[in-house]
């Protein structure tokens, strides 16, 4: 089986000369389809930078990233947008929902960008809402939802386009224990039912305990890469 994400010799340096910060140093990494992998490590270890590189949000200083067989190097801004739209789902720490859209509309938005028909958008969004346990709340705007509910909408939005990989950066950081556990359980069940691949940057022990693979980062390098039994 081919990896869904491949990083080869990936480095990222911010700044120049004496002020240069080496955020990533020569990273080699494969993420396999259906994995729930966690990126752990102290602040500044390079978790977010690595997620940004894989998510085509930032360009590496050197090295190559391949997502679902597509090398990112040399793609135009527009092509990178298409790649993010079709192959990558994002879940952010602060939910990042569009405040003027309802839960359903937020989920549908990605499908609209993909040019999916209105009827299919509606059906798929409602199905995603059901899957994340928010039935009945589909017409609520983010401002009228709890943090946990908003993060569930974000997960539904990330999954509704059936991406190759979902990148989640500190998804539980703003949630209380109950909601954090519920979210982790949700991601686990989605992984089990749909084989969705998750790469999660986190400090949260509850998330780390549920992951199949722990990738420990330190000073821009992969310090440890271990597969668990969860």
């Amino acid at each position: 089986m081919d990896p869904i994400v491949t990083c080869r010799g990936l480095s990222k340096t911010f700044g120049k000369g004496e002020l240069a910060v080496h955020a990533l140093r020569d990273i080699d990494l494969d993420i396999m389809p259906g994995e729930i992998a966690t990126l752990a490590g102290p602040s500044g270890s390079g978790k977010t930078t690595l997620l940004n590189m894989i998510g085509a949000l930032d360009e590496p200083t050197s090295g190559e990233v391949t997502v679902d067989g597509q090398p990112l190097g040399g793609l135009s801004r527009s092509q990178l947008s298409d790649l993010r739209l079709s192959k990558i789902g994002f879940v952010f720490q602060s939910y990042n929902l569009i405040p003027v859209l309802s839960a359903r509309e937020n989920i549908e938005f990605v499908l609209q960008l993909q040019g999916v028909s209105a009827a299919e958008r509606h059906d798929r969004a409602m199905e995603a809402i059901k899957e994340v346990g928010l039935s009945g709340l589909e017409d609520r705007r983010p401002g009228k939802m709890s943090g946990g509910q908003q993060q569930r909408v974000a997960v539904a939005r990330a999954l509704v386009s059936r991406p190759a990989v979902v990148l989640a950066d500190e998804p539980t950081a703003n949630l209380d224990s109950k909601n954090a556990l519920a979210l982790v359980e949700l991601m686990r069940s989605l992984n089990r039912e749909h084989g969705t691949t998750f790469l999660i940057g986190t400090h949260d022990v509850r998330v780390l305990e549920q992951s199949m693979r722990h990738i420990e980062m330190l000073d821009g390098r992969i310090d440890r890469d271990a597969r668990g039994s969860a």
């Binding site: 998510g55 949000l57 801004r77 527009s78 947008s81 298409d82 790649l83 993010r84 739209l85 079709s86 994002f90 952010f92 990042n96 569009i98 938005f109 990605v110 960008l113 993909q114 939005r157």
Partner: peptide, 15 residues
């Protein structure tokens, strides 16, 4: 930040 989000979600600059 919101425009960044839209771009991250795959919205093209022209859009």
């Amino acid at each position: 930040q919101e425009f960044g989000l839209l771009r991250a979600l795959g919205m093209k600059p022209r859009r």
